[in-house]
Design a protein around this nucleic acid. Structure first.
Length: 326
DNA sequence: GCATGTCAAGTTGTG
DNA sequence: CACAACTTGACATGC
C-alpha cells in the first residue's frame, strides 16, 4: 500500500510556516532576538499540528518538515536552542503533541536538509557546519518521532569514491541520534543509485530513491531495478522505503529538466511501485492539490499505463520528447 | 499597500 | 579567476 507524502508547505490550505533572516536578527539585542525566534518557533509548532491534522483528514501518510522550522538556530552568529526560548514549554508541548498525533494516526515525518549540508566535502568547515545542522535536525526529529533525515552525496571534488570515503568517515562523527535517521538520496547531477548503494550497504543507511533525479542523471539501472535494489536498504533498518516522485515543468528536451511541475504526470508514477509498501513524497508545486490528484489517479486504478523505463537508458534523452507526446 | 531585491550555508560550469 | 546558475517562497526594504 503506497503512502503519499506532502512536502513542507501548502498551496491552498492556509497553513504557513514562518522564518526570519540573520540580517534581521543581527540588528537586535540578544533578548529581542530570542523573543522573535521564540514567537516564530511557537507559531511553527502550531502550524505543524495543523499540518498533521490536515494530513490525517485527507489520508496523507507523510509530511516533510521544512529545514528552518527553528530558523537560523545553528547559525554561529545567532545560534540558540529550544531551552533558550521564552516559549520553550509551550513549544515542547506542541512538539510532543505532534508526536502523539503522528503515532496515533500513523503519519510519517521526515527532514530534508538543504543542499549545503554535505558530509563529503574536503573543506572541514563545511563538514562542521553540516554536522551542526544534522544534530539540530536529529534532536528535533527525536522529539517529533521523525524517522528519516535525507541528504545528498555532495560534490564530485577529486573523485566520487574519495568523496564517499570522506562521507563514511564523517558519518562516524555524528551522534547516533542523527546517524540512525540519516538517509542518502540520489541526486540529479552527480551521485546515482548505483554510486550510493555500496556506501549505504557499508554504513547500513537507507537509500531514498528519487525517480526524477534518476532520469536527469541515469546510471543504466531501470526503475524496477533501482527500486528493488533500494528496498533492502530499508528492510535492513526495519523501515518503510522512501521514494520521491516529481514531473518536470518543461517537457523533456524543451527546457531545463530539473524544475518541478505543479502536478505529477500520471505516467511518471511507476507501475512497479503501485503495490509496494512504501512512502512516496510528492514533490510538486501544487503541493496538497498534487497529492490529492495523485491519490485519485492511483485509486481509480485506470491511470495511463506507465512507461517505467521510457526515459531511462533505453531511450536517449533527445528522443524522449517525442516519446512523451503519445 | 505593492513591487522588487535578498536570503547563512556549496558546487559546478562557463566565460 | 570571477560569477552565474541551481531553486524557491517568504522575508525585508523601499517607494
Amino acid at each position: 500500500m503506497i503512502r503519499l507524502g506532502l512536502c513542507c508547505i501548502f498551496r491552498e490550505e492556509p497553513i504557513r510556516f514562518r522564518t526570519i533572516t540573520v540580517q534581521t536578527l543581527r540588528k537586535l539585542p540578544r533578548v529581542a532576538q530570542l523573543d522573535r525566534v521564540s514567537e516564530i518557533c511557537l507559531d511553527n509548532s502550531k502550524s505543524l499540528l495543523a499540518a498533521l491534522t490536515f494530513a490525517h483528514k485527507n489520508s496523507i501518510g507523510a509530511f516533510r518538515i521544512l529545514s528552518p522550522f527553528m530558523p537560523r538556530c545553528t547559525h554561529p552568529e545567532v545560534a540558540y536552542t529550544l531551552a533558550d526560548l521564552p516559549d520553550r514549554l509551550a513549544i515542547t508541548a506542541h512538539l510532543a503533541q505532534a508526536n502523539d498525533f503522528r503515532t496515533t494516526h500513523d503519519i510519517r515525518l521526515s527532514f530534508h536538509p538543504d543542499q549545503f549540508i554535505i558530509l563529503s566535502s574536503p573543506n572541514p568547515e563545511v563538514v562542521v557546519n553540516s554536522c551542526r545542522e544534522l544534530e539540530y535536525q536529529g534532536l528535533l526529529a527525536e522529539q517529533l518521532g521523525a524517522d528519516t533525515i535525507t541528504i545528498h552525496g555532495g560534490g564530485k571534488y577529486d573523485s566520487k569514491s574519495a568523496a564517499l570515503a570522506r562521507f563514511a568517515d564523517n558519518f562516524g562523527k555524528i551522534s547516533s541520534l542523527a546517524q540512525q535517521r540519516l538517509a542518502l538520496e540520489n541526486d540529479d547531477r552527480i551521485y546515482t543509485v548505483r554510486d550510493l548503494l555500496p556506501v549505504c550497504r557499508e554504513l547500513n543507511i537507507p537509500l531514498v530513491y528519487d525517480l526524477h533525479h534518476h532520469r536527469c542523471n541515469p546510471d543504466g539501472l531501470s526503475v524496477a531495478e533501482a527500486t528493488s535494489l533500494v528496498i533492502p536498504t530499508w528492510e535492513k533498518v526495519g523501515r518503510e522505503p522512501y521514494f520521491h516522485v516529481s514531473s518536470p515543468r518543461h517537457p523533456w528536451g524543451s527546457g531545463p529538466p530539473r524544475p518541478h511541475a505543479d502536478y505529477i504526470d500520471p505516467t511518471d508514477f511507476p507501475e512497479c511501485w503501485k503495490d509496494l509498501r512504501a512512502t512516496v513524497d510528492v514533490e510538486a508545486k501544487a503541493k496538497e492539490l498534487a497529492v490529492f490528484r495523485l491519490q485519485d489517479m492511483l485509486s481509480d486504478g485506470n491511470y495511463p499505463a506507465c512507461a517505467d523505463d521510457c526515459r531511462l537508458g533505453r531511450i536517449k534523452r533527445e528522443d524522449q520528447g517525442s516519446h512523451l507526446k503519445n
